[in-house]
Design a protein around this nucleic acid. Structure first.
Lengths: 192, 192
DNA sequence: AAAAAAACTGACTGAGTGCTCAGTTTAATT
DNA sequence: AATTAAACTGAGCACTCAGTCAGTTTTTTT
C-alpha cells in the first residue's frame, strides 16, 4: 500500500469516527506515521482529501454493485427485493466507515458549496436507491409487484433499510433483530 | 424575550445550520447582539448550551404531543397511524431547526460521553417512536391492525417517515410528493 | 556517476477557538 | 439615597488548527 493510500484509509476511518471538523491533520499524520507536510503533498487541502474519499467510495460501490448483479439472479422481482435489502445491509457492514460518513451531515453541507462533492453524493445515493428501483421495475414486468410508483416506493424502502442501518450504528437496535420485519414490510408494500 | 432565551434561540438555529463545532461563540454573540461574556454568564460552557437546547426540545415535544393526543381522537388504530404520520411531518416542519439538530451526528457523539445528553436523546426518540407504537397497539386492540411486533414495526415506520423528513431537509425530494405513498405503505404494512 | 525529479520532513505561521475575569452598568431591596 | 445583587462587557489568555516552505532524502532518468 502506498503512503497516499494509507493516508486515505486512515482519513476515512477518522472522518467517519470523529467527523471532518474534529479530525486534525496533526492527528492524521501521527496515526499514519507520516509528516503533516506529506499529507499536503498528496492532497491539496483537507477538503480535497474528503473528496478523494468520496471518489474512492464511488468506485467501491460501482464494483460491489457490478459484482452483485452478476452473481445474483432472481426468479421474481419480489424475491429480488429481499436480495436487494440483504445486499444493502451487507454493503453497509462491509463499508461501515464510509456509510457512517454518508450518514453524517458534513458531506451535505460541503455539497452545498462544492459541485464536485454534490455530484459524487448524488451519484452514490443514485446507485443505492437504484438497487431497489430496479427490483421493483422487474417485479412489475413479471407481475409479482403491484403497480406502484417505482421511484417513490424505492425511496421509501431505501429510507427504511437505511434507517435500520442507522439504528445499528447508533447501537439503538440491532439490524439482525429487525431483519424479518424489514423483509415482511417490504413484501407487504409491494405485493399485489 | 429575555437575553437568555434569545441566546438559546440563536444557538439552536446556528447549531442546526452550521453544526456545533462550526458555530463559534464569537459569531453567536454577534448575532444575538450580546457580549461573549454574557453567553458564559448564562451558560457554563458551550456544551451546557447544547444541553439546554435539548432540554428545551424535550419540553416542546412533550407539549406538542400532549396537545395532539388531547385534540385528536381516532376511530381506529389504522386511522390513528395516518394521523401519527401527519403529526410527525407537522412536528418536523414546526421544529425544523431542532429536527435538523437531531439528524446531525454531533448529538450522538456527545451522548456517548455525557449521560445527561444521552438521557435526553433517548427520551426524545422514545417520544417520537411512541407516537407510532401507541397507534399500532390501539389498532391491535380494535382489530384494525394485524398482529405484528408493535415496537419493531413502530421503529420501521418511524425510520421511513423520518427518512422522508430527511429527504425534504436535504432538498432531495419533497415530503409532500411522497405523502400518499408513505400513508399507503404504512397501511399495507399494518393491515390484516 | 551525475543530474533531475519526486517524495518527504517538521518547525513555523497567523487566524481562529472557547473561555476568563476585572470592572461597569442596570435592577431590586432596604 | 445607599446598599446589595444580578446582568453584562470586551480585552486578553492559552491553545488548536490547516496550511506553508526551506531543506533533506529517496527514486528515476540520463
Amino acid at each position: 500500500m502506498t503512503r497516499k493510500q494509507a493516508i486515505l484509509q486512515a482519513a476515512t476511518r477518522l472522518f467517519s469516527e470523529k467527523g471532518f471538523k474534529d479530525t486534525s491533520m496533526a492527528r492524521l499524520s501521527k496515526i499514519t506515521g507520516v509528516a503533516q507536510g506529506t499529507i499536503f503533498y498528496h492532497f491539496k487541502n483537507k477538503e480535497e482529501l474528503f473528496i478523494s474519499i468520496l471518489e474512492d467510495f464511488r468506485k467501491s460501490i460501482i464494483n460491489e454493485i457490478d459484482r452483485y448483479t452478476k452473481e445474483n439472479k432472481f426468479d421474481t422481482g419480489l424475491d429480488m427485493i429481499e436480495g436487494a435489502v440483504a445486499f444493502y445491509l451487507y454493503l453497509a457492514g462491509a463499508m461501515e466507515d464510509r456509510f457512517l460518513l454518508l450518514h453524517r451531515h458534513e458531506a451535505y453541507e460541503f455539497a452545498k458549496i462544492n459541485p464536485v462533492c454534490r455530484d459524487l453524493l448524488e451519484f452514490i445515493y443514485g446507485c443505492l436507491i437504484n438497487i431497489f428501483e430496479q427490483a421493483i421495475l422487474l417485479g412489475q414486468k413479471d407481475g409479482t409487484i403491484a403497480d406502484v410508483p417505482a421511484k417513490k416506493i424505492a425511496l421509501l424502502i431505501f429510507t427504511m433499510v437505511d434507517g435500520v442501518v442507522r439504528f445499528s450504528t447508533y447501537e439503538l437496535y440491532d439490524a439482525g433483530t429487525l431483519y424479518d420485519e424489514l423483509i415482511n414490510s417490504c413484501r407487504k408494500i409491494l405485493q399485489k
